[in-house]
């Protein structure tokens, strides 16, 4: 579904992605973790070309992302992206946030789109907030609407870029619950997160990054019980210490 082959990226002189090789199969849930500045956000943003790559090749759903000729919007419609800061459209209600792309990009009938949006809002537990504007919702609620917005396009892949990092602790649970549910439905997920509990429970594989490179790629059990790399060990020690659990 997603295949990185020798991918490099630079921000000016900074080498943010260094020879990335990674293969995410259909229906797989992959969690990417690592200290801040390790390049994990950049990695996930290359998958829908929010960040173009400089070297190597990257295939997503059969498309070659280094090929400038293909219609990126078509691919993006197949990929849901959930941001750390939610990025809901502040001028639209929760319902309209969800129906906009299905109607305008997919050409779905308004009624169908609204029915779909309502079922998604029910799924994330926010049916009664359909007419609320983003500014009237809590962070956790906004993020759940954002997930519903991504799902409304019936995507093949969902990407999560630190979806809980901007949330108050008491709201993290509600968002993770929605994501957990998603993983169980068999959608292809790539999740950048520090929520190791979530990784352990739902990930098929865990990828550990530092300084732009993938240092370790393993099943959750292997990774958490027997990390190979020194820096992975150090990272786990820090993040699993209760003092740092909210990083």
């Amino acid at each position: 579904m997603i295949r990185f082959e020798g991918v490099h990226k630079w921000f000016k002189k900074l080498h943010v992605l260094n020879d990335i090789h990674l293969h995410v199969k259909q229906n797989e849930t992959v969690v990417v973790c690592g200290p801040s500045g390790s390049g994990k956000s950049t990695l996930i943003r290359t998958i829908n070309r929010l960040e173009p790559i400089d070297k190597g090749s990257l295939f997503v759903d059969g498309y070659d992302l280094t090929d400038r000729a293909f219609d990126i919007n078509k691919l993006r419609a197949e990929i849901g992206f959930v941001f750390q800061q939610f990025n809901l459209y502040p001028h639209l209600t929760a319902l309209k946030n969800i129906t906009l792309a299905p109607i305008k990009v997919r050409g779905m009938a308004r009624q169908d789109a609204e029915d779909l949006a309502m079922s998604l809002l029910e799924r994330v537990g926010l049916a009664e907030k359909r007419n609320a504007y983003p500014s009237q919702l809590s962070g956790g609620q906004q993020q759940r609407v954002a997930i519903a917005r991504g799902l409304a396009m019936k995507p093949k892949i969902m990407l999560f870029d630190e979806p809980t990092s901007a949330l108050d602790p008491e709201m993290i649970g509600e968002v993770l619950a929605v994501m957990r549910h998603l993983a169980h439905t068999g959608m292809t997920l790539v999740v950048v997160t520090h929520e190791m509990g979530f990784a352990r429970e739902v990930a098929d594989r865990v990828v550990f990054m530092d300084h732009g490179a993938i240092l370790e790629e393993a099943t959750p059990d292997e990774f958490f019980l027997n990390p190979q790399h020194d820096r992975a060990k150090q990272f786990l020690k820090q993040i699993l210490t209760p003092m740092h659990c909210e990083m």
Partner: peptide, 30 residues
């Protein structure tokens, strides 16, 4: 308008012009 708004709409499959039309300009005009 924060650039993340454009990122969000582009991620949703909107072209640059459609993003302007539905997401950015309605907010900017306000």
């Amino acid at each position: 308008i924060p650039k993340e708004q454009m990122e969000a709409s582009r991620s949703g499959g909107f072209s640059y012009l459609r993003s302007m039309q539905y997401i950015i300009l309605p907010q900017a005009v306000r």
